[in-house]
Amino acid sequence: MSDKPELSLEQIPANRALVEELYGHNLINQETREYALDLLYPRSKWGLWASYFLSIIGSALILVGIIYFFAFNWSKVPIMAKFALVESTILICLACAFWRGIDRLSGKLFLLSASVLVGVFLAVFGQIYQTGADAYQLFMGWAALIFGWVLLSQFAALWIIWLTIMNLFICLYWDQAVFPSHQSEAFIFSILGVFNASFLVLREFLLYKKPSSMNWDWLGAVWVQGILFLAALIPLAIPMHQAIWESSYEGTLAAICGAVLGTIFHVLAFWVYRFKIPNMGALSTIILSLCLLGEAFFGRFVFKSIDGDGLSFFIMGVITIAMFTFAIVQLRRIHAQMEAENVPS
């Protein structure tokens, strides 16, 4: 695979991949595998694990409980009492966040709760004053109000919540305030895709370039990358499929724009995750998406140009095998090269 000199046993690092490989080739059994992994990743932290788990699920349940409490819309509770209740809960959360400090998980969770409660406040506000405002206004206000906290939190979960609110706002705003025409409907995908992709770029930039002396490790979790990556990829892949399948979309600016952006995203993401920040998961997802696009493209072409009988099915079967084989060969080569470069998988 590579021309690197053979390493001796002392030079080969012991890691998860190595143990999994021994297990994969049936050289060790499950018991030995776990034993080895316990040695490598000491995990006698059941208590800590349970403690995190209880904190997160517990606070989530309480927050949902508070939302339900206000959703009941008690007619007996005076208006000002309702506001006082929400605001004092926000204040308590903030006070606790100060007290714990926002560098600890508990402090971050309090800040997150305060942010969610601002949304609850806005919902209650709409309920009491019957503002009947379009839902996008609620999400817009919510995202704007908590943005300062989000910025300071250094907490990935809160960022993801903020991005979810922003995505909802964009979708609802598009629907309720822009009134897109049939031709421009598809622009929403480009907007969402570019919005989410810019945060993906920001994450990778901050995490790998470390522009300031600040600690960016909190962005490092794989799930953060996964969510951002999918949130950018899916809306950008949809207009590409539309451009392939729907002939009525041909030529509209929205579809072309989405398809062009989608193509750029696929190419850039491939380049970045292959050469700049090697990452097998992201690469495989890009390649899978390309294969699905290929299926759609050839499918449309073959089934339109060759009528009837089984020939088109047969050709598609052959194309599928050829295309996926090609993709897998490429991925395996890349995988081998990454292994040689010692990229953790």
Binding site: E6, L9, L288, C291, I328
Partner: peptide, 24 residues
Amino acid sequence: AKYITQSQGKSEMPIYIRILVGVG
């Protein structure tokens, strides 16, 4: 030890590739 030294650079297919094989 023998296996580890011999198999440098060729490891198992990661799960992503298996999924790709499955979809294809």
